[in-house]
Computed example of a mutant assay.
Amino acid sequence: MESKTPRIVVLYATAQGSTRDVAEFIAACLAERSADVELSDVEHAPDLSRFGAVVLGSAVHDMAFLPAAAAYIRAHRDELARRDVWIFSVGLGPSLHGPIGRRIGRIVPKKIATLCELVHPWEYRAFAGHYERAGISLKARGLYRLIGGGRYGDMRDWAAIRTWSASIAQGLGLRQAQSTTVNS
């Protein structure tokens, strides 16, 4: 009796590499559980007919996915809607603190919600990214502080990303990881 290994593609659109790093981490977490995982940026995405599940992520700029990710979802919405899909974003919102920041961080931007409605993912999850102070204007730094930005640098929560990856694995019926080779 031959067991069927789930085929998963992890796609991403990144501006400065943070989303790619998260996508690589998710792909490694799923591969640890014996899934057949392929990783690709959306601009070089493989044919979806080879995969039963898709994990798709994008950086968020101006409360929207990057144009390449948004265009990919629109162009492949029918194929995506017929598969198990999980969508994630990497941006500033989830790292905000204080009363204003926490409220802003929980809001799914309308442009992202509209894209999710096209493909009906099992789940959409927003993760904090990497935000450097260098090159940011004084006005933008002031606004960042006002809305609850507390620090700069790498704000990715690898434990939360690992937990979300495990929930994807569980949703696909993957076995438990044999090792913990994926480090944060």
Rank of each mutant, 00 (worst) to 15 (best):
I107A: 11
G135W: 09
A140P: 04
P94C: 08
R133V: 15
G101F: 04
V85D: 01
R77A: 09
V108Y: 02
I100R: 04
A81M: 06
R77P: 03
K111F: 00
W122L: 12
G129M: 05
L138D: 14
P109S: 08
I136S: 10
E123T: 14
L96D: 08
I136N: 06
P109L: 14
P99Q: 05
V85R: 00
A140C: 05
T114C: 07
S89E: 01
E117M: 14
L96Q: 10
C116D: 10
G91Y: 10
R77E: 04
R102P: 01
G101H: 07
W122Y: 12
L96I: 13
H120F: 11
W122T: 10
E117K: 15
A81Q: 08
L80R: 01
T114E: 11
I107E: 10
I112M: 05
P121E: 13
S137G: 15
E79C: 12
C116R: 15
L118Y: 01
L92N: 01
R133W: 03
H130A: 01
I100T: 13
L80C: 07
R141G: 08
D84N: 13
E117Y: 07
A128T: 01
F88R: 00
I87W: 02
W86P: 02
I136A: 13
T114Y: 00
K110G: 05
I87N: 02
P109T: 14
W86D: 08
R106L: 09
T114H: 08
Y131Q: 05
E132H: 09
H120T: 15
